[in-house]
């Protein structure tokens, strides 16, 4: 298993690094128009949305509501400007409690 496993890891590394590197090559060659600039500026927020939902429902696969409760707790804490570390640990605690109760 060890031999092929090394090749799998190297292959995974390559196919992960190429999409990460490609933008360097592209951006050095083209000057994007204004709307592309706006679009790229929106990407972080669109990415956050897509990364949060619906993935958060699979925190506990059998009980989607647990992830949702943890997410709502995190959003509440973030809204009241808690430090992000409290938001993270608060969400973990909420999930532990919710799992015990549900």
């Amino acid at each position: 298993m060890t031999g092929p496993l090394l090749w799998i890891i190297l292959g995974m590394s390559l196919v992960t690094l190429v999409p990460r590197w490609l933008p360097v090559w592209i951006v050095d060659r083209f000057r994007p128009p204004e709307w592309v600039h706006d679009w790229l500026n929106n990407i972080p927020y669109a990415a956050l949305g897509a990364l949060i939902f619906p993935g958060i429902l699979s925190v506990v696969k059998e009980e989607p509501s647990i992830g949702l409760i943890g997410g709502i707790a995190a959003a509440g804490m973030a809204f009241f400007r808690f430090h992000i570390l409290f938001v993270i640990f608060g969400a973990i605690l909420t999930v532990i409690v919710a799992k015990a109760l549900l």
Binding site: Y45, L48, G49, L51, I52, G55, I56, V59, V60, G67, G70, G71, A74, A75, M77, A78, F79, R81, I84, V87, I88, G90, A91, I92, T94, V95, I96, K99
Partner: peptide, 25 residues
């Protein structure tokens, strides 16, 4: 399972302050 909420909590913790700044985000 309980730990896997932490990355989502971080994403939420990043998004919420941006939304407070502008509803567009």
């Amino acid at each position: 399972a309980s730990m896997s909420i932490s990355l989502y909590a971080m994403f939420i913790g990043l998004l919420v302050p941006a939304v407070r700044e502008s509803w567009k985000w």
